[in-house]
């Protein structure tokens, strides 16, 4: 456990001594701030108009009108940005030859993978916490429902954790960071558009494809519906990515 944490600390150090983490966090916060600002401005405008007609009063819901679209936008931004966070995890070790140091140390491959993964999760958490600061203000000046709000953020975190799990796998396969990022990005897009394919498919295929798609599960959470099958989907996705990483590293040595 201690060795795992040493790896995490080292990874965090390299994230925060290089510009990568700062740039990703800054751009993500900026975009999320912009989305939030435009959504809340629009909401304000609509609300003022609607409130003049008491009949529509019930329909003004900040969760549905601001947070649900905000979370959807942020999920796409995560899809675009997290490959940049995961791309260096193993690629760089391989390129620098430091993989040899790690693999000849008395720590297990699992500890190395989990240590690195944990560091990337901490960066993800930092991104989400910073981007949440302006949205918290709505609780001071309004009364959004807390459950869909928190589930939305939990959903973003789980979604990001699944993205990173896949990213770690690709980064273990190549020593080129760009290749690793592009492959992660491509695979993520594929899982995204699976839901489109699901619309035109029929029967069992439709169920399978829509189950596999990232965003079907995410929609539930932004609507405030918490289903353990969504949770287990994201966790098993991340676990699968890490498991494949482990296999790749072991296989390369045994080949």
């Amino acid at each position: 456990m201690k060795a795992l944490w040493s790896i995490t600390k080292k990874e965090l150090l390299s994230y925060f001594t290089s510009p990568i983490a700062y740039v990703v966090i800054a751009v993500f916060t900026l975009l999320s701030g912009f989305f939030f600002y435009s959504l809340i401005s629009w909401f304000n405008m609509v609300a003022i108009q609607i409130l003049q007609n008491p009949y529509y009063y019930q329909q003004v819901n900040i969760n549905q009108m601001v947070f649900a679209p905000l979370f959807n936008n942020l999920s796409i931004v995560l899809l675009l940005m997290l490959p940049v966070i995961s791309m260096r995890l193993f690629s760089e070790e391989k390129k620098m030859g430091t993989e040899e140091l790690l693999l000849t140390s008395p720590i297990s491959v699992t500890q190395i993978i989990l240590g690195k993964y944990l560091a990337s999760l901490i960066v993800l958490l930092t991104m989400l916490v910073l981007s949440a600061i302006p949205t918290i203000l709505t609780f001071i000046y309004g009364n959004p429902e807390p459950l869909p709000y928190f589930l939305g953020y939990l959903g973003l975190f789980l979604l990001g954790a699944a993205f990173l799990g896949l990213g770690v796998f690709w980064s273990a396969l190549t020593e080129n960071q760009i290749v690793s990022a592009v492959l992660t990005f491509g695979t993520l897009l594929l899982f995204w558009v699976l839901s489109w394919a699901a619309y035109s498919a029929q029967g069992l295929w439709q169920d399978v494809l829509s189950y596999l798609s990232f965003f079907e599960h995410f929609d539930n959470m932004t609507r405030g519906v918490f289903d353990t099958s969504d949770l287990s989907y994201y966790l098993s996705f991340a676990f699968f990515g890490l498991f494949l990483t482990h296999s790749v590293i072991q296989f390369r040595r045994w080949r």
Binding site: S18, M96, T98, E99, T104
Partner: peptide
């Protein structure tokens, strides 16, 4: 000590 010294330049 491997042939390529395993160092992290940013440390």
């Amino acid at each position: 000590l491997p042939e390529n010294v395993p160092l992290y330049p940013e440390m």
